[in-house]
Computed example of a mutant assay.
Amino acid sequence: MKAVIIIPARLHATRLPGKLLLKIGGQTIIERTYRQALRSREASGVIIATDAAEIADAARGFGAHAVLTRADHQSGTERIAEAALAAPDADLIVNIQGDEPEIDPAHIDALIALHRGSRAFASTLACPFPADLDPANPAAVKAVLGKPIGESAFEALYFTRALAPFPRDGGGAFHLHVGAYAFHREALLRFANAPVSRLEAIEKLEQLRILEMGEKIAVRVVDRAARGIDTQADYDAARARLENT
């Protein structure tokens, strides 16, 4: 079963415009993410899917396969569904975010392995909440895990920006959702052709569309999440970490 990674890459981010073309140690954020994805042992290729000629040109400049997509997609997963046409022989499509230059290739491989052995509509990742991140922060999406379906793997019950499961008696263990997904090709196309669902529109979380379609999401719990870059502070911190190593 051939797996291909597709990285959705928008130019006009709200909180840090043009962030994917910002440089860390001489390489753009999108190039660093691409090179981490290339280190996956389970994927046979990496494609960058973008609606911006600037990103496509930059990607081709560092040797990546870049696909220009429509600009009106509602989510990154819809964008990769269009780009998947450029990989017609791929049975399994992996979606990783373009702003994660420190993503662990072993986590990508764990996601691919989970989905290959699962009957779920989609598979994703989660990790224990980092000590320096407040679970009550709505920007930190919580994965609510249900029954075990394998080693460190669970069926997802819900994803939310709220504090869940709510610890009525104090304490509580929370899982941070890691925004990487694996789909079989047919499931990806079904997702892209389905309308935005009610809960998806409320929480602004595209994975809720899958649950509202009546389908299952498998979740592999990994040890930690890569640090994405959403703000200027994130970018400054990434430069401090990566330019001094």
Score class of each variant (00 low, 15 high):
Gly228His: 15
Pro148Thr: 01
Arg41Asp: 12
Ser75Glu: 15
Ser40Phe: 13
Ala87Trp: 07
Ala164Gly: 02
Leu21Cys: 03
Ile217Leu: 08
Ile80Leu: 00
Leu125Arg: 08
Arg227Leu: 07
Ser118Gly: 14
Ala106Leu: 12
Glu212Asn: 08
Asp91Arg: 13
Arg32Trp: 11
Glu186Met: 04
Phe174Ala: 10
Ala187Asp: 10
Ala87Gly: 11
Val46Phe: 06
Ser40Val: 12
Arg39His: 12
Ala90Asn: 07
Val221Glu: 03
Tyr235Asn: 13
Ala162Gln: 09
Asp72His: 10
Thr160Val: 01
Thr33Ala: 13
Phe183Arg: 11
Phe183Asn: 08
Ala52His: 06
Phe154Lys: 07
Val46Asn: 12
Leu199Arg: 14
Ser118Asp: 08
Ile93Met: 01
Arg190Trp: 04
Asn137Asp: 12
His107Ile: 10
Ile217Lys: 03
Ala156Met: 11
Ala140Trp: 06
Leu111Arg: 05
Ala53Thr: 14
Ala43Cys: 09
Arg10Glu: 02
Pro138Thr: 14
Glu215Met: 01
Leu111Ser: 03
Asp132Pro: 01
Pro138Tyr: 10
Ala52Lys: 02
His107Glu: 12
Asp169Cys: 03
Pro128Leu: 06
Leu68Thr: 06
Ala240Lys: 11
Ser152Tyr: 02
Ile149Thr: 13
Glu155Ser: 05
Thr28Tyr: 01
Tyr181Trp: 10
Gly63Ile: 09
Gly117Thr: 06
Leu38Thr: 12
Phe159Trp: 12
Ala52Ile: 07
Glu212His: 08
Ala164Phe: 02
